[in-house]
Design a protein around this nucleic acid. Structure first.
Lengths: 164, 164
DNA sequence: GTTGAAACGCCCTGATG
DNA sequence: CATCAGGGCGTTTCAAC
């Protein structure tokens, strides 16, 4: 994982339709080794998948809601049931277990308030909640799936800190 | 935008490496019209881009933080400066203007606490803040870029409600 | 909508230096 | 790492039904 690998990742995170030839040109490599690097990034699990991004407004899921949840109780069973419940809900696009007051944060995409209300009811029916706070988005200011890449800050297999 | 289009979107949201032939087979179409539908979805802006998704842990950005912000003042200038500031910060992967108490929500990806602290300082230096509340993710339970697709609930060009 | 068939480019794999 | 060469697949466009 060197500077060239990071360049490849950065480019592919923004446009996965780039051909190996174009990619090689942009990172200053010939196609063959560039192709091998891409393969290795995929087999190593760095690049996990290639997907199409869709305009949510165009398909009618314009309402984004952030949901902060406090668990009803703190048991493995609760977590298991909660995890299974949100896994089965396509409207829940993201879920994290948090540090601090709030136990879980969800990012939800729905068509509108009525659909969100239905989701809320399914959620509280699936598992007991101590508190649920929903925050509704009015306007999207920024959205990207590209993670930030740092000049040479990473941790390699041996566990040492790296610096490009 | 009919049921077949929605199937195509659903499949491509999960795997953009599918060939037109495979896609056509899965949606019950022959390759030619299937290819035309994909083209139309792209020119109409439904499919906006194709990107590679990366494992954040593998590239060292394992810390996800949700930041709730109350604006220092409510003026167009504040919003303009804030928007410009976060646009220039690759660590800020998502930003929404919210309804209710919290004015803005950010989703941030960083290498660790020290980097988050540096980002926080850049943020409050860029524009005055009334309140900033940061919540740190311990564990990711779910993540998808695929928006939910509803059986025939959409709004077509003429503005009428549609039902498949 | 369907099938069939072209042309072209790219993917992927070897070989060599 | 670079370059060259090749087979095979997929895309893209065309024709006709």
């Amino acid at each position: 994982m060197d500077e060239i690998d990071r360049k490849i990742i950065g480019l592919l995170q923004n446009d996965a339709t780039l051909s190996v030839a174009q990619l090689a040109d942009k990172v200053g490599l010939s196609p063959t080794p560039c192709w091998k690097r891409v393969q290795k990034l995929e087999t190593n699990g760095v690049i996990t998948r290639r997907v199409a991004l869709v305009d949510p407004e165009k398909i009618g899921v314009g309402l984004i809601v952030y949901v902060a949840i406090e668990a009803g109780d703190h048991t493995p069973e609760w977590l298991a049931r909660f995890t299974a419940a949100i896994a089965a809900m396509p409207e829940v696009m993201e879920a994290h277990r948090m540090a601090g007051e709030v136990d879980y944060m969800l990012r939800v995409a729905v068509t509108g308030m009525s659909e969100f209300d239905a989701l809320y009811k399914r959620l509280i029916a699936a598992v007991p909640m101590r508190n649920v706070t929903s925050r509704f988005a009015m306007e999207g200011l920024k959205y990207t799936t590209a993670y930030p890449l740092h000049r040479g800050r990473f941790r390699d297999r041996s566990g040492r800190e790296g610096e490009g």
